[in-house]
Amino acid sequence: MSAILTLNAGSSSLKFGLYHLSEEPELLLKGQVENLGPLARLKVKGGETREIGPADHAVALHEILQAIEPVLDGRVVLGVGHRVVHGGMNFGEPEVLTEPVLAKLRTLEPLAPLHQPHNLAAVYAAQKEFPESVQIGCFDTAFHRHHPFVNDTYALPYKYYEQGVRRYGFHGISYDYITSCLRRDWPELYKGRVVVAHLGNGASMCAIKAGQSVSSTMGFSALDGLPMGSRCGQIDPGVLLYFMAQGMDANAISDMLYNDSGLKGLSGISHDMRTLLDSDDPHAAQAIDYYVFRIKRELGALATVMGGLDGVVFCGGIGEHAAPIRARVVGEMEFMGLKLDAAANDAGETRIGTGPVEVLVIPTDEERVIARSVADALLA
């Protein structure tokens, strides 16, 4: 009687999944501690919501352990799986998180400051709670490891590419899950050319050809590509040089690009798409207009990279739940073979297209991908 625990740590939340250990892990319980800080609360899917009060990742994990204890029912947690956003050049497969590995991952914190430190904080907390369990890291960058050179490089002196200044891409665990769903349920589409749009507080898009990532909108860091909740997305580097010339230092620029830009910065209202869609403020409308524009622009570019398009898949919090955003993207790209079934879209159905290019909505499940990786390690 053995179990797997998965931890997906962000700056303000710690998501968890508890699974019975088997070749295809069986979900026992799922939830998260959200609003880490002074007013954290525990939410169990299909169960309780409980106010916790002040909590960091260590306190959050302790609360999670209390929630899973009755469900464990004698099972022993043999493995803990972690989402780690940045694996750099060194890590392309799930990895046992030994201290030497963790030391290398700490050096990547400047490339993903909103994620990497919190990912590793959850690892250290889990090591204390489960000292005998194997800790496995799964990397968001791993799915994109085999891009063609032209999709990985920047037009900088080549020595910097060799040093690791390259396009890594992110959200790979989510893309891995969506690809597994296509392989199982849409095998012909899986063999073709698909753009997956992972749209949430963090957002990116990925061109996937025959199950393999060939290009992603995100690059060296998790800032590039689409505008996000509070991150800028694509920006002319000359703008950053201008800010520096005006006296802004690296910390101030970094804080603005990561925390005060994107939907939040453009609207001046909120990073939350739900709030913006409900608002009659013209700045909210402008922020949404820009968001949709960038999705359409990247969709065209990614289709070109693959030499055509057979399907589009929406996932992530916005991709799965914001029907108006999907409608504006699909409804304005009929020239590419995308045609919206408005009723299916409004109803949140899986298949929302009627044109020659398939359009799907598939809820992502990063925790299951992590659990599968832990199971593979334990059952090998």
Rank of each mutant, 00 (worst) to 15 (best):
L360P: 02
M256Y: 03
D280L: 08
V134W: 09
V361F: 04
L302G: 04
P25S: 04
Q212V: 03
S13M: 10
E99V: 12
V329C: 04
G88Y: 05
D255V: 04
N119M: 09
A40M: 15
E367D: 13
I173N: 01
T350A: 12
D341C: 09
D289T: 11
M205T: 03
L102I: 06
T217L: 00
A303Y: 07
A287L: 08
K159Q: 10
P131L: 06
A142P: 08
H82W: 04
G316Y: 05
S221H: 00
A210S: 05
R41A: 14
D140M: 10
R368S: 07
S213L: 00
L266M: 15
V195A: 04
Q246N: 02
I208C: 01
A287W: 07
M256W: 06
P282D: 10
L360T: 02
L27M: 14
L182M: 08
D224I: 00
G265M: 04
Y160E: 02
F314S: 01
H82L: 06
C206K: 01
A377P: 02
L226H: 01
S270R: 06
H283T: 13
F170K: 03
G238T: 02
S2G: 02
S213W: 00
V84Y: 03
V214P: 01
P131T: 11
G47S: 15
A207P: 00
I352L: 05
L120H: 08
G164D: 08
A371D: 13
H20D: 15
H271T: 12
L241I: 07
D310K: 11
D152I: 00
H283R: 13
Q163P: 07
D185C: 01
G238S: 02
K128E: 15
D152F: 02
A252R: 14
Q286N: 11
N345C: 14
V84C: 10
S213G: 02
R294F: 10
T98S: 15
I325D: 13
P187L: 03
A245V: 00
S12C: 12
I52F: 12
E320N: 07
N119D: 15
H20I: 08
V194C: 04
L29A: 12
M306Y: 10
L199N: 01
E69M: 05
P131E: 06
G81K: 10
Y258P: 05
A155K: 03
R106E: 15
E367M: 09
M1R: 11
A285G: 07
